[in-house]
Amino acid sequence: MKHLETSYKTHDGIELYLQAWMPESPKASLLLVHGLGEHSSRYAHLVEKLTEIGVSVFTFDGRGHGKSVKGKPTAYFKSYEDYLKDIDALFGKVKSYVPDVPAFLYGHSMGGGLVAAYVLKYQPKADGVVLSSPAIKEAEGTSQILIALSSVISKYLPKLKALKLDANKVSRIPEEVEKYLNDPLVYTEAIPARTAYEVLQVMRFVQNLGSYFETPLLLIHGSDDGLTNPKGSKLLFKKAKSSDKTLKIFPGGYHELINDLDREEVMDLIVNWIKERT
C-alpha cells in the first residue's frame, strides 16, 4: 500500500495539504473531510481498516486547518462556498485517480455538514455518504439574538475569537481528550466569528434542502454529543429521499465516535456499510 503526501492549489490560490492511502488493487475510493479545528491525520486508525478492505482513502487538511496553514492552525475560512469548491475539485481528483470503482464521501462534524451541503448543491455521482456526528442543527436553546448578532460580528470582526468548544466533550476516554489537547495541529482556541457564522449557514442550507438528498446514506451520532446536535442527524434522516439510508445513534456516545468507548463497533459499522456497497 502506498501513502502519498502532496498539495493542491485551490481556485483562489490556497495550498491545501493532501494525503492518500492507496491499496494495490482498489475496490473503492473515499474522500474524507475532517471536523472543525482538527486535521486529516487523526483518522489513521479508520483509514487502516478501510484500506484492509481495498478502499483507497484520500483526505486533506481544510482551509485554516492542520498542515494547510503555515505556522499555527487558525480554523479560519472566509466562505463555506469555497470549502465546497475544494471538496468538489478533490472528489473529482479521487475519481480520476481511482476510476471505475464505487466512490464514497465521509464527513465528520463540520465536515459532515459540508459533505451534506456538497451533495445537495453539486449532486455528485457518489455511491454512498457516511456522516459522523454532522453539524446540521444548532445546539438546543441557541439564542436567536446571538444568531442575528453573529452575521454582524462575522462581517466586521471576522477573526474575532467568538466560540469556545469544550474539548472534554470530544470523547469519554480521558487519554483521547489529552491527545486532542496536546496535538499541535489541532486548533483548541475559540473559533473565529466568520468560521462560526459560515458553519451556521451550512446547517441552515442542509436543514432547508435536506429533502433533496437521494444518495445512499449512513448517519451516525452519539446520543450525548455536546458539540453537534444529534437532532440534526435525525432531521436529515427523516428528510432524505434516499431509498438506502441508515441512522445509528450510539447511546451515551460523545462527539468523536471513532475515538470513543464504542469505537470498534463504530468503525466496524462504517467499514461493513461501505464493503456491502462495493
Rank of each mutant, 00 (worst) to 15 (best):
S7D: 01
Y8D: 02
L36T: 08
E38C: 07
Y43N: 11
L46S: 07
V47H: 03
E48V: 06
E48M: 11
L50H: 01
G54W: 12
V55W: 00
S56K: 08
V57C: 04
F58L: 10
G64I: 04
H65L: 05
K67S: 02
P73K: 14
P73Y: 07
F77Y: 15
D88H: 15
D88N: 14
A89E: 10
A89M: 05
F91C: 13
G92T: 15
D100K: 11
G111Y: 13
G112C: 11
G112P: 02
L114D: 02
V115L: 04
V119T: 11
K121Y: 02
Q123W: 09
P124R: 09
K125R: 06
K125T: 13
A126S: 15
G128W: 00
L131Q: 05
A135V: 10
E138R: 12
E138W: 10
S143E: 05
I145H: 07
I145T: 14
A148E: 12
L149W: 02
Y156D: 00
K161R: 13
K164S: 09
L165D: 08
L165E: 12
V177H: 14
N182H: 15
V186L: 12
E189F: 11
A193Y: 11
A193P: 00
V206D: 09
L218W: 13
L219Q: 06
T228S: 15
G232Y: 01
S242V: 03
S242C: 07
D244E: 13
L247T: 08
I249K: 10
P251Q: 10
N259W: 06
